[in-house]
């Protein structure tokens, strides 16, 4: 009880004080906030990230195979056209003749659309090519697939002719 009364007195005093000064809230907030010493440390930047001075080095992962032609696809499609089937037929003959060559099939898309969706679409394209080659008698063990989605366009730029070139599956020898 006593505490309550003291509290009341303090509050009344406070009220009087504040009405004299004007507004209780006008006392400035002197919140000292260090922006955070630990946060001040910079995110670790990679060494040698000096812009411009660094030369990009393209590391070829696989070799093109002279005897195997790439195939193309329609927008947002991974079904094989008649032309693609005939090219795959030739590629199958090459693989039969060169039984020591194992192949990675790269699926690619044009730059339009979701990158993540295109990664999936590129893989579907590569798989469509692989399955067709298997149906022509090539051992699945010799064929692997990888999708690059829209990340490795054959030609840069825009327009249907560019996009059509980029919607493709390529055949590379595994070293």
């Amino acid at each position: 009880m006593k505490a309550m009364q003291t509290l009341k007195l303090v509050l009344i005093a406070l009220f009087l004080c504040s009405s004299l000064i004007g507004c209780a809230k006008s006392t400035p907030q002197m919140d000292q906030e260090d922006v955070g010493k630990s946060d001040m440390s910079q995110p670790s930047e990679v060494k040698g990230a000096d812009e411009g001075s660094m030369k990009a080095e393209v590391v070829p992962t696989h070799d093109d195979i002279a005897g195997m032609e790439r195939i193309n696809f329609d927008f947002d499609q991974f079904t094989l056209s008649a032309e693609a089937r005939s090219i795959l037929g030739n590629n199958a003959k090459y693989l039969q003749a060169n039984s020591g060559t194992n192949v990675v099939i790269e699926g690619h898309c044009d730059e339009r659309g979701s990158d993540e969706y295109n990664l999936a679409l590129g893989e579907s394209r590569a798989l469509a090519a692989k399955n067709y080659l298997v149906s022509l008698g090539i051992s699945a063990k010799r064929l692997s697939v990888i999708s690059y989605g829209e990340e490795k366009p054959l030609s840069k730029g825009t327009g249907e002719s560019v996009w059509a070139q980029n919607r493709r599956a390529e055949f590379k020898a595994i070293k």
Binding site: Q42, P43, V46, A49, M54, K55, A56, D115, L119, Y148
Partner: peptide, 29 residues
């Protein structure tokens, strides 16, 4: 910018960009 698609980090106003990876391959998403 470095020649390969790498991961970068910047302030929300686009300032102070720094590169976080050096994979020299393709970094995404």
């Amino acid at each position: 910018l470095s020649g390969d698609k790498e991961l970068w980090l910047m302030d929300v106003d686009g300032k102070r960009p720094i590169r976080l990876t050096n994979h020299r391959s393709i970094v995404l998403n």
